[in-house]
Amino acid sequence: MSDFPISIKPFGSNAILIEWPKQVSTEILEDILSFTDALKAKLSSLKEWETISAYNSLTLISKEQPISFSSLEKQLKQWYLEKTNSDTSTKVLWRLPVCYDPVFGIDIAEVANHLKMSEETLIKQHTQKPYTIYGIGFLPGFMYLGGLPKSLEIARRSIPRLKVEKGAVGLAGKQTGIYPQQSPGGWNIIGNCPIPIFDIEESPPCFVKVGDQVQFYQVSMGEYDLRKIEANVGIFKLQKTILDA
């Protein structure tokens, strides 16, 4: 793994932004994760810090104390040079059920028509390969997933909906994802995932993390209902595979 030219910018009195080249790539993602890991060992009182990583950036936020930009910038550059590129965090491939029935996939017919393919082909392509989680944001548990086949790229709806259901699986531009809670939204909805991505009763409340992968598999209406009940009573067993580093 190679090092990248990084740039460091101030971001208000309490935060600092580290940016990698403006690309969506797994090499950059790996580098950000390994640097985040290195920082966890370096920043002695990590309790005082929060981190947000997304695509090509890592933001460090000091919760209470304002930071001194110039000294932290110097320190970060030094630590980046010293970094050994050993990402020790375990990455997981999660397999998540999605029901593509038109009851949930309210736009699936329109999307298939627009993309000039059958609904079956659309579902096959959407479930074919794992997606990489490049970031979590926008809403608690909302994953920014990369790796959507080009054939499934479709513009977001011209008029956003005021209400998109919790669990709705959507397509927009180069992205696919799950609405973790009911929310307004402009994505094209092709299905629904019965498993809550964010649950305050769980620890941690969000089982996925940046760097993990997600692969969808199709379930029938009947299986959807069953998985939903299992998830609600807490007996649903997530299908997970530990990925080799």
Partner: peptide, 11 residues
């Protein structure tokens, strides 16, 4: 255009 990145209160 930019890639999605962190925001803070006051951004």
């Amino acid at each position: 255009s930019m890639l999605t990145s962190a925001t803070l209160p006051g951004t």
